[in-house]
Design a protein around this nucleic acid. Structure first.
Lengths: 117, 117
DNA sequence: CTCGTGGTCAACCCATCGGTTGAACAAAGT
DNA sequence: ACTTTGTTCAACCGATGGGTTGACCACGAG
């Protein structure tokens, strides 16, 4: 699975990984610190970090024997760009459909915003 | 994997699925139409649509024996909200770090931005 | 009623994923 | 030099994911 977008999306498809990102947004942390709250082994968390790193979401520097993990914000843009593009397109299409319905000879009463949100 | 956010992210972690979304942003389509461009079976595409549907990205209506697929834009917000939150936080943190560095009395030569990006 | 057509369900295959344990490596501290 | 602390590597395990084939169901056309 080479492509960057897939890597980012699937990296964030895991709750633990998202939580790690959330915590890294507050402050850098080491693997052990990150692993503490979860009841999985440190190795498991290390693997998670590897995934995040491969996705470009995170970087590890070296500082003594510690390896502080740092959140890399830029990659987010990749996603937001993709998402926004198709969201806009879909909404645009929705708006146009709306216009069409509105401009329709009132043959078929348009279901009056059936949307019980 | 119950939580909605995970479902959306992992739904979009697949290139084929993203492509389907991209095409549905232009116009609704049936399963067969959607399957045409790819060299996989219709069943495979049907499965993809199921995943997208479970993620709330897509809805299938019934129209004669056809089942047109429609892109649902709202779910995107879930993602963008999540992403934007942590991106802002990370950028904020970066900005603050910058300030700190700038306001530092040049006592201890701060490891001069050891960050060979 | 029967026959295409559009779509799904079911069972299976193999690769990947999240997790484990156990060993190894790297850099202090003693 | 030996030990401790932090981290990763390797091998394995069960579950899930994307794909297949083959049967099945729903519908409209003849």
């Amino acid at each position: 699975m080479a492509d960057p977008l897939s890597r980012v999306f699937s990296a964030l498809a895991d709750p633990t990984r998202r939580d790690i990102v959330a915590r890294l947004a507050v402050a850098d942390a080491t693997v052990n610190e990150l692993a503490a709250p979860y009841d999985v082994t440190v190795q498991a968390v290390s693997k998670h970090l590897r995934v995040l790193e491969d996705a470009g979401l995170v970087s590890r520097s070296r500082e003594a024997q510690r390896r502080p993990v740092h959140l890399e914000a830029e990659v987010f843009d990749l996603m937001t760009k993709w998402i926004e593009r198709y969201r806009r397109q879909a909404e645009e299409r929705y708006r146009r459909l709306d216009d069409v319905l509105r401009s329709m000879p009132d043959a078929d009463p348009p279901p009056p915003e059936e949307n019980p949100r």
